[in-house]
Simulated assay, not measured.
Amino acid sequence: MDTLRPQFWTLPLTALTRAEWEALCDGCGQCCLHKLEDDDTGEILPTNVACKLLDTGTAQCKDYRNRKAYVPDCLRLTMRNVADQHWLPRTCAYRLRAEGDPLPSWHYLISGSRETVREAGISVIGRVICETEAGPLEHHLVDWPDAGDQQAFGDWEA
């Protein structure tokens, strides 16, 4: 079993072990939401519609290991492809580290608590609907906040 090195999250992504790479995820669930692309501008438009495998109460994949069998177009983030995934939220730990930025204070590796991602308003828990219940994605466009935008969620819920 891999052990996690102290402050491994400060290392370049290429220096991480597989276990460290997996532990870098803050568990927000935003990467498991459907997105639309504006045909005219190419802009990625986020929705509050979750993949059928995302547990909307925990923001965790219900079958992470076998997800590609159920969702063939599920993208596996790797050290090689993460820098090309511009649709990842600006708060994503993988994106932050790929761009050389530090993790935010609410990330569990910094705060010591898995709850701080939710307290900061970054987690999708309680704010999304499953794709099997949603209907047309166009009816579910949202403006997901970044860490400093905690008030943007306000009273908004799925």
Rank of each mutant, 00 (worst) to 15 (best):
T14E: 14
T58P: 08
H86N: 07
R80F: 08
W21F: 13
R90N: 13
G112W: 07
F153N: 05
E131G: 03
A50G: 03
R5S: 09
E115G: 05
T56L: 10
T56G: 04
H139Y: 00
A158L: 07
T3M: 14
E20N: 10
D39Y: 07
E119V: 06
Q60M: 11
T14R: 14
G27Q: 06
A59K: 00
T17C: 13
L137K: 05
Y108A: 06
H139I: 00
A134Y: 04
T47F: 03
L141Q: 01
D40M: 12
M1N: 05
V82M: 08
C32V: 07
L11M: 11
D2S: 12
V124H: 04
T56Y: 05
G154C: 01
A152N: 09
T3C: 08
E157N: 15
G112Q: 08
D55R: 09
D2Q: 14
Q150R: 14
W21L: 01
L4Q: 02
D149S: 10
T47Y: 02
R76S: 13
R76F: 07
F8K: 06
E37F: 03
Y70Q: 08
L4H: 04
T58K: 15
G100K: 06
V124T: 14
Y94L: 02
P6L: 01
V124Q: 06
A93Q: 02
E138A: 10
I125Q: 15
T14K: 15
E133M: 08
C92W: 10
G121I: 06
D38Y: 12
L75C: 09
P136H: 04
P104K: 02
T47N: 07
C32G: 01
I129H: 00
Q85I: 11
G57Y: 04
C28A: 12
E99M: 15
D155L: 11
L54V: 03
V82H: 09
R97A: 13
R114I: 07
L141N: 00
L75W: 00
F153M: 13
A59R: 08
A93R: 10
S111G: 02
K52R: 12
S105F: 02
G112N: 01
S105T: 09
T132C: 11
W9P: 04
L137C: 12
N81W: 13
